[in-house]
Amino acid sequence: MNLLKFDSTEKLNEAGAGIITGLIQTNRRAVLGLATGGTPVGIYGEVVASYRRGLVSFKEVTTFNLDEYVGLPEEHPESYHSYMEQHLLRHIDLPREQAHIPNGNAADLQEECRRYDALLDKAGQIDLQLLGLGHNGHIGFNEPDHALISGAHVVTLREETRQANARFFPSLADVPTQAITMGVGTILKAKMILLVVRGADKAEIVHRALTGPITTDCPASLLQTHPHLVVLLDNEAGRLFP
């Protein structure tokens, strides 16, 4: 594990974007696993800036998003389809057919999970998986449980997860109760995992995830088993680390 702390948001964003664009510069056909939420917004902004400066092209890149809400129309401003359009896809030259996001409105959600896993299998190993971290230790929408599912699946979101995401919606009642998420097994198969965590409210859970016992009660703790884990923390999130 390579853990880095940053004393400014700008430096963290630049470092995260540099890892992503550096990979694409050396492997123009890179397969990226992408995350959403507040954490990676600034990183995507720096990636877009690098593209606009002509430093990187996404024409041969393939991307797979971690998750999507169930039942939220793609055009809804809080869907992850809309998020990716707003923060990344509309600003770069990635062909849309190479950008994959689960369909949370599929008529058969189980079949959609199988379809998504088949696309991942066809693409081969993810070269870099970008992750944030939930307050309860979830990665993607893999919630704490007695067992974790390897492949894509439908998950019922825990109340604390919905409450954490309620800031993006008019009210808690508007937050979807289910999502499709990439499985932990798929995440851990990535060649490299880039975990980005910000804020004092995440300090205890990121410390537990990276130094505590490996347990499905904290899905992110399984990242300790990964051979190429890079962790980017701001000083607040990293306050419990030396």
Rank of each mutant, 00 (worst) to 15 (best):
A35L: 01
L109W: 01
L233G: 01
C218V: 15
N235A: 12
D201W: 05
D7P: 06
P102W: 03
H146V: 15
K189F: 05
G45L: 04
I92K: 03
M182N: 09
I149G: 04
T62H: 13
N235W: 07
A166D: 05
R28P: 15
D201Y: 05
P40G: 07
V41Y: 09
R167D: 07
K11F: 09
S221D: 10
P176D: 09
A237M: 06
P227G: 08
A152C: 14
E75Y: 11
C113Y: 08
P102H: 01
N65I: 06
L66F: 04
G212T: 10
G54Q: 02
T177Y: 04
C113R: 00
S171Q: 11
D7K: 12
G212L: 11
L128Y: 06
S79V: 00
L194D: 04
P144Q: 09
G22H: 08
S50G: 12
A30G: 11
D67A: 08
N13F: 10
F58S: 03
A106N: 09
G33L: 04
V70K: 03
D174Q: 14
V175W: 01
G124D: 04
G124K: 05
L12V: 07
L66I: 04
T156E: 15
T186M: 13
T26N: 15
L148I: 07
A200H: 12
M192I: 11
H228F: 12
V206S: 06
T26H: 14
N13W: 13
S221A: 08
Y69A: 02
A35R: 02
G238I: 00
L128M: 15
T211E: 14
G212N: 13
P95E: 02
G33K: 04
A35F: 01
G33F: 00
F168A: 15
F141Y: 10
H228P: 05
L210Y: 00
P77R: 13
I92A: 04
Q98V: 08
L55T: 12
G132N: 01
H81E: 11
L128D: 02
A203N: 09
E14T: 14
N165E: 10
K11I: 07
L94C: 12
Q178K: 15
L229G: 03
I180V: 13
P95Q: 08
A220S: 09
R90W: 03
N142G: 00
T21D: 10
L210S: 07
R115V: 10
R28S: 15
L172H: 09
K122T: 11
V206Y: 08
N235D: 14
G37W: 01
A118P: 00
N142T: 00
D217W: 12
Y83C: 05
G104L: 09
C218D: 02
T225P: 00
A106S: 14
G140Y: 01
A49Q: 14
I92L: 12
T62K: 15
E78F: 12
R208A: 14
I149V: 15
I214A: 02
R52N: 13
T39V: 03
R29S: 15
A152M: 09
Y44H: 02
G104H: 02
R115K: 13
K5Y: 00
E75H: 11
S79G: 03
G151R: 14
E68R: 03
A164T: 11
A200E: 14
T63D: 08
L133T: 05
P219A: 05
L4C: 10
Q224D: 06
I205L: 05
H153N: 11
Y69Q: 10
I193E: 07
Q129Y: 06
I214L: 02
R162K: 14
